[in-house]
């Protein structure tokens, strides 16, 4: 039951993030919204893991490990986007 609650929260996070992604014109805010969507998707994995509790474990470790990998990858993506933004907002490089 509580897992389902977090699942619904994850679904709502995806929705809220999507709204932000569409509505905010600035790239930094889009990046924040993108991270919200990511958090929602990861929560879906968390719920899937929690529902699959078995063998004395409180959750299925496979989706949990996948989320750990996913969080690191999402961070790398954000870092790359941030670098692009920093370059774009700076002065044009003199040739």
């Amino acid at each position: 039951m509580s897992a389902t609650l977090f699942g619904l929260a994850g679904a709502a996070l995806v929705g809220i993030g999507l709204f932000g992604l569409i509505v905010h014109p600035t790239a930094l805010r889009k990046l924040l919204a993108f991270n919200l969507v990511g958090a929602g998707v990861f929560l879906v994995f968390g719920v899937v893991a929690r529902r699959a509790a078995a063998a004395g474990l409180a959750g299925d470790p496979v989706p949990q490990a996948i989320v750990i990998t996913g969080i690191v990858v999402a961070f790398a993506a954000t870092a790359l986007a941030a670098t692009l933004l920093a370059r774009l907002s700076g002065p044009e490089e003199e040739p």
Partner: peptide, 25 residues
């Protein structure tokens, strides 16, 4: 162009990952 590409690619990734999560579930 790179920024736009990255945002499209990220949006694609997140959709794909959501699908993977549902399949695993």
């Amino acid at each position: 162009a790179a920024l736009r590409y990255l945002l499209f690619a990220l949006a694609g990734s997140i959709l794909y990952l959501l699908g993977v999560g549902l399949i695993y579930g």
